[in-house]
Amino acid sequence: MDVLYFAWVRERIGHPKERVETRAATVRDLVEELRAREDRYAAAFADLSALRVAVDQELRDFDAPLGGAREVAFFPPMTGG
């Protein structure tokens, strides 16, 4: 699946998008896999309460299932308007 990062999450991880091969069942499982990769991922995902997630461009929570998902995005709370 494609994993996208926005705003300070993108800056902390160092790129806006990457292809991830995973069998993670939920968003939380995917986060655990990413955290284990490198310090910059661990830093970006240190506090999940500071993050929001979208699965296939719909806002979801961290317990959302990933079955069949093509795109997961992580970002801070939004500041539009």
């Binding site: 926005f6 979208a54 806002l59 995005a73 970002f75 801070p76 939004m78 500041t79 539009g80 308007g81």
Partner: peptide, 9 residues
């Protein structure tokens, strides 16, 4: 749209 549309300033 302030807190549910994906914009960041």
């Amino acid at each position: 749209l302030k807190s549910r549309a994906p914009f960041w300033k």
